[in-house]
Write a protein that binds this DNA or RNA. Structure first.
Lengths: 174, 174
DNA sequence: CGCGATTATTTTAAGCTTAAACTATCAGCC
DNA sequence: GGCTGATAGTTTAAGCTTAAAATAATCGCG
């Protein structure tokens, strides 16, 4: 697996790569993780201090805010990239707090629809305003051009990762 | 919510900013989070499937591997960016699994030193090799230049976030 | 229609995570 | 020596998270 791999510079030229330790990719990954954790922890603590709300609850409400007609648990779980079982309890707590409402679909009784209550909508709007300011503050050291560049590179990374994951899946389940 | 706010360029000049919705920063933050979650979830599931190990355990062992002489719990907690209390239980489980060893410092009996056992070292080496391949695979869609560019931009983001957090702290505790 | 496969959600067990309160130890100072 | 404050870890309670198994409802097809 750590053999030098052939690398095609163009259709004519092939050079043998130096021993691949993946060091650059690993360093990049650690840096990515550091940045995300840094921002996430800061937002988490500010949400708690300022609004006494947890980050997962805020995230869930943000998803519902984006889709005022409500969503099914399945949609929520795929958008939030968390497991299905996770949502059951999270939704339960937000329902208890009167921030969201659940109702079973009339056309398919397996499906549960969730939406913000009016008071949940109000509470979210308050939080979202400050949340936006916090994020903007944390990213203030980047120029508009750098923000755009990062956006583009991260999009490329997302595509790369998804395709690698798909390839691995194809290898496992042919 | 979307009112223009006055912005103080210097003590003399005030210009009115264009409506600040922080939309670009928010989108960038969500994309950053998506990328990290995507990679993290994939690595987590592969570590579990292939080595029956959790990501936090792998991370802890990786830190200890980088510092063969061992570390204190305080150092570990700051490097891993997790709470102190978190580590107590995590370390406990890894000690039970004979992957790491704890010993109380002789010079300061409050301090706990932790280090990989020989078998922990071996187990980690096996996992690290494949882990590196996985990461390289997920990042394979990026050129060397793009990796370097991302590294630079993320470093800038890290600096920006840290300084914003420091500024917020200064505002709270003068 | 009825049965097997599929889909949506819940439950369960284990582990991770944090914040806050607590314990133990150390360092400095009189 | 004995306070006082700071530092290193642990404990606790609550909540988050996952993976896997279980439940329930729907769909497709003969």
């Amino acid at each position: 697996m750590d053999q030098p791999r052939p690398v095609f510079i163009d259709s004519e030229t092939v050079v043998s790569e130096r021993p691949r330790d993946h060091k650059d990719e690993l360093r990049l990954w650690l840096r990515l993780l550091t940045c995300t954790t840094l921002v996430e922890d800061n937002i988490r603590s500010r949400l708690r201090a300022r609004f006494d709300v947890t980050l997962p609850r805020f995230d869930l409400m943000a998803q519902l805010h984006k889709t005022p007609q409500g969503m099914t648990l399945g949609q929520l779980s795929s958008r939030m990239m968390v497991s299905n079982g996770n949502l059951t309890a999270l939704v339960e707590r937000l329902v208890d707090a009167r921030q969201i409402e659940r109702r079973v679909s009339e056309t398919d009784r397996r499906v549960v629809q969730v939406a913000l209550t009016p008071s949940g909508e109000t509470a979210f709007a308050d939080m979202a305003r400050e949340h936006g300011d916090w994020i903007a503050g944390l990213f203030a050291g980047l120029s508009e051009a750098e923000i755009e560049q990062l956006m583009r590179l991260l999009d490329k990374l997302k595509t790369s990762a998804r395709s690698a994951m798909q390839a691995a899946r194809d290898r496992t389940e042919p």
